[in-house]
Simulated assay, not measured.
Amino acid sequence: MSRTDPPPAGAHVTSDVAHRPAEPRTGSPVLEVTGLVRRFGDLTAVDGVSFRIAPGETYGLLGPNGAGKTTTISMVAGLLAADDGEVTVGGRRMGPREVEPKRYLGLVPQDLAIYPELTARENLQFFGRLHGLGGAARKRRTAEVLDLIGLTDRAKDQTKEFSGGMKRRLNIGIGLLHSPELLILDEPTVGVDPQSRNAILESVEALSTEGMAVLYTTHYMEEAERLCDRIGIIDAGRIQAEGTRQELIRIIGELDEIRLVGTGDAAAAATALRELPAVESVVAEGRALVLHLREAPTAVAGVVTTAGRSGMELSDVEITRPDLESVFLHLTGKALRD
């Protein structure tokens, strides 16, 4: 394949204008999505979706396949026209015909957009030129991105020799080259092994420290909990609920659970534990006491101390917390992976 060939299908968003460094936009959202609607014939794939992302924030769109995530980000990236609603990136209106806002955006699609015959470094250099990066800046940024995605030691290898996870990491690196204000990641860990998946997540975690806004779509609950500052639960083309993990958990009113197993005076311990302000209830189950309370990680030290002072010698302490799977089931009536 010639190095002057056009980019592969599904390639990262670029523009045909010179790259300009992103300007800081403290105090205003990097991305604002208002009332997006997209129909395909009789199917309304996206139905009034609204959300915003601040600088340095990672926002997750969490939902099953077919929920409307990819259609939403296609409109956010200006690849697909909305039937209604508006998208702005740093205050600049986005759309298929708009060029200016795409300078400030990086898109990492589900489909790999890399040249298999080129090395990792050559891929980055090629896409850097498409973004208008000059020679010295392109070389410096390529080295920075290779380090961030953990591929410095494989920089000279052809990417056709890479594992699936390494290709995914390079895919992310291409989206990062021009230091965008907003990076969009569309299910970047699909089909990779656990070790590669963890490496990808570590790379994404590092982005918030650079002040980059990230829109992350996934149907993996654990990824959303690990990476995202705020989460929008999307199903049937609509945002069903939005907030931090704790805000979403409060929707269903579920409490954390601490299970204490041990010997000694469990009855006295139960009485004392019921007096703790954080504890909602205490139930005896054989040799165990089961407590329901809020913010178990914060309260557990006081719980253990109180149980010990009341004559209960503990052999095991287990904490169980409600998760986003519970929230999703509550809101939609189905499991996340249905």
Rank of each mutant, 00 (worst) to 15 (best):
P180Q: 07
P109T: 06
G35H: 06
I231H: 10
E98N: 03
P96N: 13
D265C: 12
T332E: 06
G253K: 11
R197A: 04
L177N: 08
G56A: 10
Q158H: 04
E275K: 11
A224N: 07
A269Y: 04
E98I: 09
S203I: 12
P8R: 03
S179N: 09
T189V: 01
V76I: 15
T119Q: 02
R97V: 14
P6G: 01
G10D: 09
L293M: 15
D5H: 00
L62P: 00
E98S: 09
S15Y: 04
A77I: 07
E210Q: 12
E313D: 10
D42V: 06
E225Q: 13
A213V: 08
S315H: 00
E161H: 15
R337S: 05
T4S: 08
R39F: 01
R154M: 11
I319W: 03
M312T: 12
H292C: 03
K160T: 15
H131T: 13
R138Y: 02
G68Q: 05
D42R: 13
R238W: 02
A199H: 13
P322D: 13
P96Q: 10
S74E: 10
H178N: 00
G78V: 06
D338N: 11
E247G: 10
L36Q: 06
G68I: 03
R230S: 02
E86L: 07
S208R: 14
L207W: 14
R25I: 00
V30E: 02
T44D: 02
M75C: 10
L293T: 11
V279L: 04
S74W: 06
R287F: 13
V282G: 11
V99W: 11
K160M: 11
V317A: 08
A120L: 05
D111E: 15
T159D: 10
V99F: 12
Q110I: 02
E86F: 11
G333Q: 06
M221F: 03
D16Q: 14
T4D: 11
G90I: 01
L207I: 14
I234F: 01
E313K: 03
G91Y: 02
T217H: 07
A284I: 07
G302N: 15
I233M: 15
K69R: 00
S310V: 09
K102Y: 07
D229M: 01
A143G: 10
D111S: 05
I172S: 13
L185Y: 14
L176P: 07
D323L: 04
R39K: 02
S74V: 01
Q125K: 08
V192F: 00
E275P: 05
R250G: 07
P297Q: 09
G128V: 06
V282I: 01
T244K: 08
P7M: 05
P55G: 07
N171S: 13
G286A: 10
E313L: 03
E202H: 14
V303Y: 13
